[in-house]
């Protein structure tokens, strides 16, 4: 792209930014109407969890989250369809290995902690899953080509587990006559925890597998994949 064109784009975008700022200002000025915040807070006791963000994610807008997990799965499947994983890393030296052997368990532990705490304080499935994923990344960086993950077959089952549990809970409540993803009172806390646990595992495995950048290479013992 030549210089005048770049300049032109820049100028136009400056204008764009100014307009947007003005609009944003106008949006703030506009009376905010009935904000969802109060509603969300008022409904919190009914949702079964105490952390409002978790309530939004897994109760009020649980359906969004279901589809979001599908997005993650889609990305992984897309990456797998592109070919084999990138080559692994050279084995870690002593210092790194020592650090990894400390940090990875801590990551997993923290993940579990965040998952558990998500019910009443900041944290939740996604943060926990991201930590698990990071553990996988770290393992792979330290030389484990599989990033600590099991065989492809098992990976396939793990990555779908989160959505499967989520969707089956939804269908279950639907069949039970309460409506899709509508938790029966009293059960919601545990159902949410169940879904979150499955989702955490799936997210962690998905992220770690995505970092590998392709289909898991079969280990020598796995036999031939075409």
């Amino acid at each position: 792209m030549n210089r005048p064109a770049k300049l032109m784009i820049g100028l136009l975008l400056c204008l764009f930014a100014l307009v947007l700022l003005w609009v944003f200002h106008a949006a703030l000025m506009q009376s905010p109407g009935a904000r969802l915040a109060d509603l969300a807070m008022d409904s919190l006791p009914l949702s079964g969890v105490k952390n409002p963000v978790t309530a939004v994610l897994l109760s009020y807008r649980a359906y969004d989250t279901l589809l979001e997990l599908a997005v993650l799965l889609a990305a992984l499947l897309g990456i797998w369809s592109l070919g084999a994983a990138t080559p692994g890393f050279q084995p870690a030296g002593a210092a790194l290995a020592a650090m990894v052997s400390w940090v990875v368990p801590l990551l997993i532990l923290t993940g579990g902690y965040l998952l558990w705490v998500g019910g009443y304080a900041p944290g939740g499935a996604f943060q926990a899953g991201a930590l698990l994923g990071s553990a996988g990344v770290l393992l792979r960086l330290a030389g484990d080509e599989r990033a600590g993950l099991p065989s492809e077959r098992a990976q396939r089952r793990l990555v779908v587990a989160g959505i499967a549990v989520f969707a089956l809970v939804g269908l279950g409540t639907m069949v039970a006559g309460i409506g899709f993803l509508t938790y029966p009172p009293g059960w919601s806390k545990w159902l949410i925890l169940l879904i979150e646990t499955a989702a955490t595992v799936s997210i962690g495995v998905t992220l770690a597998a995505a970092y590998a950048g392709g289909k898991p290479r079969s280990r020598a013992s796995d036999g031939a994949t075409p």
């Binding site: 939740g124 943060q127 991201a130 930590l131 994923g133 990071s134 990344v137 995505a210």
Partner: peptide
């Protein structure tokens, strides 16, 4: 909540992917 997620992703997977 969001800060947790952003930190976990930004420094973890996202950063590693982009560095690669």
């Amino acid at each position: 909540d969001v800060a947790l997620a952003e930190a976990a992703i930004g420094a973890g997977l996202g950063g590693a992917l982009m560095l690669a």
